[in-house]
Structures are given as C-alpha cells and as structure tokens.
Simulated assay, not measured.
Amino acid sequence: MAHMDATLGASPSGQLAHKPTGRISDPIFVGLLWASGLFVLVLLGLIIAMLFHGGLPALKEFGAAFLWSTSWNPVTEKFGAGVMVFGTLFSAIIAVIVALPLSFGIAFFLTEIAPMKLRRPIGVAVQLLAAIPSIIYGMWGFFIVVPLIAAYIQPPLIEWLGPLPVIGALFQGPPLGAGMLTAGLILALMILPFITAMFVEVLESVPPMIKESAYGVGATTYEVYRNVSVPYGRTAMVGAVMLGLGRALGETMAVTFVIGNATRMSASLFAPGSTIASTIANEFPEAPMGSLKLQALLQLGFILFVISFIVLALSRLLVRSKLKS
C-alpha cells in the first residue's frame, strides 16, 4: 500500500505531488498591483510636498496677500501671484469659449453629416493636431498669428468696439498682436482635438434606435442633435470640457511665445499678460538657489496645482449632478 501511495504521488498529472503555482503567484500579483496604485499616490504626494515646502517661506514672507497681490518685482523682492492667477484663468476661459462650439460642430459633422470618405481624413487631421508639440504651436503663433492679429483683427475691433461703454474695456489698447486673446486662441487650437475626440466618442455611443425614433416623428437634424444626442452624452461632455480646461491651465511654452509676458493686469483682451506656467518657464532659470524669487516661483507652482485640483473637483460635482438629474 505504501508503494502504491508513493506511485500515485509521483503520477504524471502531479495533482497530488505538486502545490498549485497560482497560490504562490497570486499574492505576488496582488502585491504588484497594490504597489502600482500606491506609487501614483506617493509620487503625487512628493510633488505636492516639494512645491508646498519650497514655497512656504515666500508665503510666510508675504502672507495671504501673496495670492492676490499684483506686484512682481525681482529687484525689490516684492512678489505676488495675482497677475499670474488672473492670466491663467483668463486665457484658459477664452480657450474654452472658442474651442467648445468648434468641438461641437466638428464632432457632430463627423458623426452625422460628413460622408464616409471624409470622416477618416478629417478625424486623422484632428488627431494630428493633438500630436503637434506645444513649442511648435508657440512658434507658429509668434511668427504667423501674432502679426495677422496685429494687422487685421485688433485695429478694426479697437475702432468699432473700443468706444462702447461696457464691453469696450475688453477691446482697448494698442494693437500689439501678442496678448491674452492670442494666447487664448492658441490654447483653443491645442485643446480642440482633445475635446473633439471625446465628443465624437460620446455621440457615436448614442443608440441608433433613439435617433431613428426622433427622425421618425419628424425631428430635424438640429433637433435630434439638441434634444437627443447632447442630452444623452452631456455627462461625458462636461468631463471633456473640464479636461480641456485643465489642459489649458497648465500649458507653458505655447503661451510663453504669444502672451507678451508682462507682469501687469488689464481687462483688455489685447493687453499682454502672463500665466503661472509662463512665468515659471521664463524666470525659473534666473532664480538663484534658495532665493526668495525661487521660493515665490515654487509657491506659484503649488497654486497652479491647487487651481487644477479645484477644476477637477468641480468637474466631478458637475458630473454627479448631471447623473442625479
């Protein structure tokens, strides 16, 4: 019997002689998954800690007024983030205002109107826009867009809209070309493919039966788009817009080329300005290690992170509200 048991234990199937390897590999696999997930949190935490700790001396030096002060003078070492925060939000809002209707139009054209022969080439062209490096956008904006705006766009707008009582403040100033409007237009072109791609995915996910039912009761193409397609995917569309806004908030090189890089605040769309990212890109190489200027730049980076986090939180709240409604 003992010989028979030994023979059975050494059978070719190995079911009695060998322990299943899954019992060993599964804990290792689960541990690697935990490590991968925690790595993201640890890395994010280290970045936040570095920015906060590095910029804390500047916050202690200038207090809470650092957040809204418009002074940025490296000579007198008086620093404030007000101009940069304003420029970051202003240019990003312009970009979203310009890119949103264009994205809606392109996405609906590709999903409903365009012939099949044109859908793929136009779709590929939109995707190629996302692949262009930001510095190329900046160079193109500096050499092409800025002169065109200064020569053909800003002069008539200043003449026609500048004297108006309320909105005239947005269209006043010399036609320099570089400024908030130009930066917003370049940013709009950069976030356009991201928003459009998500809109296309959302519109293609609408069940054809719902749209065919709307057409069957006499709805026009516009009515189907407004009352069927957009309501069906509005939750994902809100997320797409917020994704584009977050992309615009953190853009650096393209904005640096075309915004004018002036540390002063103006309500005019044509006035030069600066963003948090462009200021860091311009002045970080010239900031001595341990200087108050470097600490102020690190604090600017922390403020940009906080703004991006707020935008993400708002997008989550909007998505949840849309889901509940």
Rank of each mutant, 00 (worst) to 15 (best):
M139E: 14
M139A: 11
V126S: 09
P156D: 00
G138I: 05
A107I: 06
Y152C: 00
I106T: 06
P121T: 10
K117S: 14
A151E: 12
F104M: 10
L102W: 05
L118P: 08
G141H: 07
Y152Q: 08
Q154D: 00
I149W: 00
L128K: 06
E112Y: 09
P147G: 07
I136N: 06
L102K: 04
A125V: 12
Y137K: 05
L129I: 10
W140H: 09
Y152V: 03
A114N: 08
Y152D: 06
V126R: 06
I135D: 13
I136C: 13
V146H: 04
I132W: 09
V145F: 06
M116H: 13
G105E: 01
V126C: 10
A151W: 09
A107R: 00
F109T: 07
A125Y: 12
G105L: 13
P115N: 09
V124G: 10
V146R: 01
I132S: 03
A150N: 04
G138C: 06
R119L: 05
F108D: 10
Q154N: 05
M139I: 15
A150I: 01
A125W: 09
F142V: 04
A131T: 11
S134D: 09
S103C: 12
V124W: 14
V146W: 02
S103V: 03
I113K: 13
G123F: 11
L118T: 11
I136R: 03
P147M: 07
T111L: 07
I135N: 10
A150S: 13
S103I: 00
P133E: 04
I136L: 13
F143K: 14
L128Y: 08
P147N: 02
A151C: 01
A151L: 06
I136M: 08
Q154V: 00
M116K: 15
P155C: 04
L118S: 12
I132P: 04
L110P: 02
I132T: 13
Q154I: 06
A131C: 10
Q127W: 03
Q127V: 05
P155H: 01
F143M: 15
P133Q: 04
L148H: 07
L129Q: 08
G105H: 03
I132K: 04
I149N: 08
V146M: 04
F142M: 14
S103F: 02
A151Y: 05
K117E: 09
I144N: 12
R119Q: 14
G123W: 07
L129F: 09
Y152S: 07
P156T: 00
I122K: 15
L128T: 12
A125I: 10
P115H: 11
I135T: 13
I135R: 12
Q154G: 02
M116Y: 11
A130I: 04
K117G: 07
I144M: 13
P121A: 11
L148C: 04
L118W: 15
F104H: 06
F142P: 02
Q127G: 15
I149D: 00
